[in-house]
Design a protein around this nucleic acid. Structure first.
Length: 367
DNA sequence: AAGTCGGGGGA
DNA sequence: TCCCCAGACTT
């Protein structure tokens, strides 16, 4: 029996492997300065990240870029500095603060998770990956990330950046998602017992700044000597992804009913598209389905066709805007249909999702 | 395994 | 335009 010794395969165990060593050395010099991050220097001096801030940032960052999250993170942590503060906030306030960030189930789960941590765990996040994993809105990735970054667990943190870096490091040509188990196994192999949180963040920094989807900067990459895809000249082609499906086009109408300086809003159903969010009344458009164009009340309407074009994850929407032109409406009767009369001057604080914020901005021009 | 669920930034 | 992003959850 022979033993092959390769410096690009890192042993599991107590030591820091060659990949982790090279990566952490680079991270110590080039870590991004992010609002939720404890710098590697501060971290090594003993400063621990606040699990609440780590968790909040990770949930906000799910399928969302750093640039989009930064402002939201600052506003949330200023307004709700602790998990208990967030847990006791009214749901509508949290959803309104989340407006524009997208994937609103995250906000609903954020509240549920904050309340579970406060009520069931005395305000302290579970310190293990398994303990975190069962909380609302915390999946495989987020459980591993919080465990590693906030609690120093050597968890395998696999996000889209790590998938790309690892697929290239090991020249994995199996297409996603079939390659995921293999990627996870290799990630676990190269994750060090020392500084697992910095390692995870370093991998994500690398994916975001050097090991990019297109035009990776292999000449600047600290892992290039260990990278099988780079050696084969196939880095940019990995990971292999399945072809994506075409997006159907839907049409719908949103309705602007304004009286006495107030506009009629509704709260959308708690699940599904834009669930729980305040919105303009609409005609029931949905994924791959057109709305009826039927107004919620009879009367005279001015219709602006093609007012808003908006692209969702799995379909595109062309939204018409219908402006109510009278006669006078019984406002109390409308309220009984779950309507909310909102001052137009303060529409920005209604927390409308971007689609309806666009429609509202146009309506205000035409009123 | 496939579908649902936002929005914006970069090329 | 197209592509992707610190994914989770449901069916």
């Amino acid at each position: 029996m022979s033993v092959e010794c390769r410096d690009d395969i890192v042993e599991t165990g107590t030591g820091t492997g060659a990949v982790a060593e090279a990566l952490l050395g680079h991270y110590d010099m080039h870590a991004r300065d992010l609002p939720w991050r404890v710098s590697p220097a501060a971290r090594r001096a003993g400063l621990k990240p606040d699990p609440y801030r780590v968790w909040l940032s990770e949930v906000m960052l799910q399928q969302t870029t750093v640039a989009a999250v930064t402002g939201y993170f600052e506003r949330f942590t200023t307004r709700w500095p602790t998990v208990e503060a967030l847990a006791t906030a009214p749901q509508e306030d949290v959803l309104a603060a989340w407006a524009g960030l997208g994937y609103y189930a995250r906000a609903r789960n954020l509240i549920a998770c904050a309340r579970a941590v406060t009520v069931d765990h005395g305000g302290r996040f579970p310190g293990t990956e398994a303990g975190l994993r069962v909380l609302p809105g915390i999946g495989d990735y987020t459980a591993a990330a919080v465990a590693a970054i906030a609690f120093d667990e050597p968890a395998a943190v696999v996000d889209a950046n790590v998938e790309r870096v690892v697929a290239r490091l090991f020249a994995i040509t199996t297409s996603l998602p079939a390659a995921r188990p293999e990627i996870r196994k290799h990630t676990a192999e190269i994750t060090p017992r020392e500084r697992p949180g910095d390692f995870a963040q370093a991998m994500m920094d690398l994916g975001a700044t050097i090991c990019t989807v297109r035009n990776p900067s292999c000449l600047l990459c600290p892992l290039a000597p260990h990278c099988a895809a780079h050696a084969q000249g196939i880095a940019e082609s990995l990971p292999v992804k399945p072809p994506k499906k075409a997006k159907p086009q839907s049409t719908g109408t949103a309705f602007w009913i304004e009286q006495d300086g107030q506009v009629l809003l509704v709260q959308r159903p708690g699940k599904g598209m834009l669930g729980g969010m305040r919105a303009l009344p609409d005609d029931g458009w949905a994924a791959g389905r057109n709305g009826t164009a039927q107004p919620p009340v009879p009367g005279q309407w001015q219709v602006i066709d093609g007012a808003v074009a908006h692209v969702f994850t799995h379909f595109s929407l062309e939204l018409a805007l219908a402006l109510y032109r009278g006669p006078q409406i019984d406002k109390v009767a409308i309220e009984n249909l779950n309507g909310i009369w909102w001052p137009v001057e303060h529409i920005a604080e209604a927390g409308l999702p971007t689609l309806f914020a666009k429609a509202a901005a146009l309506a205000i021009q035409y009123r």
